[in-house]
């Protein structure tokens, strides 16, 4: 019995998102239920602006934030220098403008809660019932 109890925290850790994981979140009323890493990568690299017919308002974190660095590293393996160079090309050529930067995860959750078309990412531990996770990026 004691041995079974000692396994419980481990089982929980495997089932629940760890604090270091990152959750991609949308409005609870959004028709989006689940997104692939490829779809989210395409959205955050400006290659697509919509999933199906669902056009999205993409929210990002400040250019040098640690969370942004971890997000792209887990999402598609790009480091921030490469992401910044990639987006600089799109932004300053006038091809497309980058996602809207917001200060932190609290602000992301607040905006996603208010905008049915918004999509953002936050620390998995910061997810509340006000938003719906559609992808968990495991640390």
């Amino acid at each position: 019995m004691r041995a079974r109890l000692s396994l419980l925290p481990l089982l929980l850790a495997l089932c629940l998102p760890a604090r270091a994981d990152i959750a991609v979140v949308v409005h609870p009323g959004s028709p989006l239920r689940q997104l692939s890493a490829q779809e989210v990568s395409d959205l955050y690299l400006g290659r697509i602006r919509a999933i199906g017919s669902q056009r999205l308002q993409i929210l990002d974190h400040p250019r040098d934030s640690g969370l942004r660095g971890r997000f792209f590293s887990l999402l598609n393996g790009m480091d921030l220098g490469r992401v910044n160079a990639y987006w600089a090309r799109l932004q300053f050529s006038g091809d497309t403008q980058p996602p809207v930067p917001v200060p932190d995860s609290r602000a992301v959750i607040e905006l996603v809660r208010r905008d049915p078309l918004a999509i953002g990412y936050v620390e998995a531990g910061a997810v509340t019932g006000a938003v719906r996770p559609v992808l968990i990026l495991k640390e």
Binding site: N84, Y86, A88, R89, F92, S93, G94, D95
Partner: peptide, 19 residues
């Protein structure tokens, strides 16, 4: 006024950080 988009780098050739 839009960037001339013909070559791989024609619309961002002044943006050295990108290449």
């Amino acid at each position: 006024r839009v960037g001339y988009d013909a070559f791989l780098m024609s619309d961002h050739r002044n943006l050295g950080f990108a290449y």
